[in-house]
């Protein structure tokens, strides 16, 4: 803005706390490694049709269980080989990652919205609201996540929507705990009282004064829960209660290959390694954000 540069004023660089944190994140080694891996996986998922010519659901029964290219019997036609139904494994890996990531991000949106809303409400209003929300939280924490997910999916059927809803409705606890304590810290600061005194609406206080001040911890929890949700979906799929064919995820790929564990280990190793890499990358990024935004957690 030209208007701020008055004739006498020395130019003052406006250092937004957000930008400072971003700058520090970008100088964090773990962020680059994790972010790099994550980027590769995300780009692969988004550009899937450009990366492989194969249809991941196309069955070529004459070419079942072709080994990957590093095996003497492998070929570049199927770089990662084919599965028991003769489907190209690279294509399945890329397209399967799409659903895994979709479930991860969608559930984090749901659980993040629920947990953040509850946590901010509990932290801001305190008193009885806080007691009530803590009560709900305690009940939620007593529920064994995998078991509840299994029961609900078994009863309600396992469409992709139901799966995302179930996981999303279960994994909000950490969001609530973290945003609650972060909000308590912020709400006791005088700028919140000042905001009340200038007549701000509650919505303005919650969204414009408090929320921007708790984005750091929120991103950290989101990364933890993203990994959590993706793993939970993989576990459910492995148990046969996750996504159903023709949809498939890395978890389902592992499940379908479990009979081949000793004879064709790559069928499990490939989606397994992808899953490990994804979780590892998410955790690295989360750690980097935590290092930058929560100095007390810095080593």
């Amino acid at each position: 803005m030209a208007s701020i540069a008055s004739a006498t004023a020395a130019p003052v660089l406006a250092l937004s706390p957000g930008r400072v944190a971003l700058g520090r994140t970008l100088r964090h080694g773990g962020f680059w490694v994790g972010g790099g891996i994550l980027l590769v996986i995300l780009v692969a998922a988004i550009l899937a049709p450009l990366l492989t010519a194969h249809d991941p659901t196309w069955q070529d029964l004459g070419k079942r269980l072709v080994p990957p290219v590093w095996d003497a019997r492998g070929s570049w036609e199927h770089p990662l080989g084919t599965d028991q139904l003769g489907r190209d494994y690279l294509a399945r890996l890329i397209y399967g990652g799409r659903i895994s990531l979709l479930i991860g991000f969608a559930t984090v949106l749901i659980s993040g919205a629920i947990g953040t809303a509850l946590g901010i409400a509990a932290g801001y209003w305190g008193g009885r609201v806080d007691l009530l929300i803590n009560f709900v939280l305690t009940i939620r924490l007593t529920l064994p996540v995998v078991l509840v997910a299994l029961v609900v999916v078994a009863l309600a059927g396992n469409s992709l929507t139901i799966l995302m809803l179930v996981i999303g409705l279960l994994l909000w606890d950490r969001f609530a705990i973290v945003t609650r304590s972060a909000t308590q810290q912020i709400a006791s600061r005088e700028f919140i009282v000042a905001a009340q005194a200038i007549g701000s609406s509650t919505g303005r206080i919650l969204f414009k004064e408090i929320l921007p001040n708790i984005t750091g911890p929120l991103i950290v929890v989101a990364s933890v829960e993203l990994a959590h949700a993706i793993l939970l979906e993989a576990a459910l799929s492995f148990l046969g209660l996750g996504v159903q064919p023709p949809l498939f995820t890395w978890g389902l790929m592992i499940a379908e290959a479990k009979n081949q564990l000793f004879f064709r280990p790559w069928l499990i190793a490939v989606p397994g390694a992808a899953l490990v890499a994804l979780i590892f990358a998410i955790n690295l990024v989360g750690d980097a954000v935590r290092d930058v935004t929560a100095p007390e957690g810095r080593a």
């Binding site: 406006a14 937004s16 005088e190 700028f191 009282v193 000042a194 005194a197 200038i198 007549g199 609406s201």
Partner: peptide, 26 residues
């Protein structure tokens, strides 16, 4: 008074200027 009417009448200045300004706002 409504919150806006009241704000028009009376305003605060607090003790700790490190806590009374939102660090995320210009």
């Amino acid at each position: 008074y409504g919150r806006l009417e009241r704000a028009k009448l009376v305003q605060p200045v607090f003790q700790d200027p490190y806590s009374s300004l939102n660090p995320r706002m210009r």
